[in-house]
Design a protein around this nucleic acid. Structure first.
Length: 186
DNA sequence: TAGGCCATCTGGTCCT
DNA sequence: AGGACCAGATGGCCTA
């Protein structure tokens, strides 16, 4: 369920998201739950009523035990969130994801791409960043002088990213590790 | 039309 | 108790 209007282009998505977020910060706007849902259900229509959530506080005496990572049993946490609290959590989550996407945008500006006319997806950005870091590390460890490195780095890096982005697009050469692209410093 | 990508909602867990 | 973080689920949009 899309809560926001989506113009369908990546170029405008960030601005649209920013506007949507700004709107949400000042005036919550949520779709209403279907009439078929009970009052105890939250606005999200995908989920049925969860007995572990309640709009009214209750005791924890009758809650089921859950086993945590240490193998210890403890009472399931009874969430006594109101609809307003759940919606506030949704807003926080949207804000968090917006922040995450901002960081991805910053990373896209840093990672060099020469042959990629399309905006890098998040996973492509991460993979290319990993490879880029490996490349620069290898450059430093190669023992070349600063002048040699600066003289050759752009050329080598350009050729390398052209190859890598092309192959990344057509298949998944960089799926595994940075070393899968091989050494680029000779 | 299938698959990839993304935004969003949600509940669980951990931390303060 | 509440917030941050995370992963699963879902639906919309876009592209090959």
């Amino acid at each position: 369920m899309m809560m926001f209007a989506d113009d369908g282009t990546n170029d405008n998505r960030a601005n649209e998201n920013l506007k949507s977020l700004t709107t949400l910060m000042s005036d919550y706007h949520f779709s209403q739950p279907p009439e078929s849902m009970t009052i105890d259900c939250y606005s999200h229509a995908y989920y049925p009523c969860d007995p572990h959530w309640s709009v009214t506080p209750t005791t924890v005496q009758n809650l089921p035990l859950i086993i945590n990572g240490n193998g210890k049993a403890k009472p399931a946490r009874h969430r006594t969130a109101s609809v307003a609290q759940r919606r506030a959590a949704n807003v926080r989550e949207r804000r968090r994801m917006f922040s995450l996407n901002e960081a991805f945008d910053q990373l896209r500006e840093i990672v060099p791409i020469f042959a990629y006319e399309k905006k890098l997806s998040r996973i492509e950005t991460l993979r290319l960043a990993i490879i880029y870091i490996a490349f620069m590390t290898e450059l430093v460890l190669s023992g070349k002088t600063v002048d040699e490195a600066s003289l050759n780095a752009n050329v080598v890096l350009s050729q390398w990213t052209k190859s890598c982005t092309y192959q990344m697009r057509s298949s998944s050469i960089c799926d595994d590790t940075p070393t899968s692209c091989g050494s680029v410093i000779d």
